[in-house]
């Protein structure tokens, strides 16, 4: 039931290596101390279907603290797969495997318990997926699962989370109505509130606005800009303008490989790779 990626396109293994720039030693890495690197991906490969499909190939990447990193690329390029590797959601998919390393705060993510890791690395999905329970219980779900029972503390967390996503003023008088009765944009903000109720370090967002209308999208984008003061955000998006608007760093993926990773202004103004340039200018999609 969790095999959501079954219809993945057959990966084409034509190598892009010769065109790639080496991102082993990124020039801007020196700007950050070790503490400011949230995730470090080292020589990471990911396979579906008992190693028969290579979804990610030799990924080397660093995610910096309190920055928004956007993953862009055509469909089936592996950007969502990589995102889901950060909180080990890919392990729900049968017959998937990996090699290489992902370090979270300089510790291999597989040395963490999934419960522990996922409480520190939150995730927002493409489709808003509020639980069919009250708004209050939706936001309190994570803390309750961690064993927080104190009503006052829960109230405080729910209140702050809803305020942070700007939902409190809209729903303050009806916290006991079902979360699924909200509008799409409100539902997605509820899901973000649910996520930050856990006070995570990182929020992973898998195309959070693709199911929303432009106004709701704008609200979410403003929210992301605000949230990066507190959280590290990784966002997968199909929308290049969105990546340009909200992200600090952009990673461009193609056919399971990381083609270019750079500061967003640099990436869109002066792409170093021919493929990136073609993608940005819309020569292929």
């Amino acid at each position: 039931m969790l095999n959501l990626f079954k219809n993945k396109k057959k990966e084409n293994n034509t190598s892009l290596n010769n065109e790639m720039i080496s991102n082993d030693k990124l020039p801007y890495s020196k700007e950050y101390t070790n503490e400011q690197v949230m995730f470090e991906v080292k020589d990471f490969n990911f396979y579906y279907d008992k190693k028969s499909k290579l979804a990610l190939k030799d990924i080397n990447l660093e995610i910096f603290k309190n920055k928004v990193t956007a993953f862009i690329g055509p469909s089936g390029c592996g950007k969502s797969t990589l995102l889901r590797c950060f909180d080990r959601m890919n392990e729900l998919i049968q017959d998937s495997s990996y090699d290489g390393q992902i370090l979270y705060k300089n510790k291999e993510i597989h040395s963490f318990n999934t419960i522990e890791l996922r409480s520190k690395v939150g995730m927002v999905f493409q489709q808003p997926n509020p639980f069919p329970m009250s708004i209050y219980n939706n936001v309190a779900y994570g803390p309750k699962c961690q064993g927080l029972k104190d009503k006052k503390e829960l109230d405080k967390i729910v209140l702050n989370s809803l305020k942070d996503v700007g939902l409190y003023d809209e729903v303050s008088d009806r916290l006991n109505i079902s979360g699924s009765s909200l509008s799409g944009g409100q539902q997605q903000r509820l899901c973000i509130a649910r996520c930050i109720a856990m006070s995570p370090d990182v929020i992973l967002m898998d195309e959070p606005t693709s199911a929303l209308d432009p106004i709701a999208t704008q609200k979410i984008e403003e929210l992301i800009k605000k949230l990066k003061e507190k959280y590290t955000i990784i966002i997968v998006t199909h929308n290049m303008q969105q990546a340009a608007r909200i992200s600090d760093y952009t990673a461009f993926f193609m056919l399971g490989e990381l083609v270019e990773f750079n500061k967003t202004e640099e990436f869109f103004a002066r792409p170093k790779n021919k493929k990136s340039e073609d993608y940005i200018t819309g020569k292929f999609s």
């Binding site: 039931m1 996922r118 994570g142 996520c195």
Partner: peptide, 18 residues
């Protein structure tokens, strides 16, 4: 159980629920 939207289950797991 199979007719439950899988994103609900994933959402729960992604929040650190066991």
């Amino acid at each position: 159980i199979k007719s439950i939207n899988p994103s609900l289950i994933q959402g729960s797991l992604a929040l650190g629920a066991s």
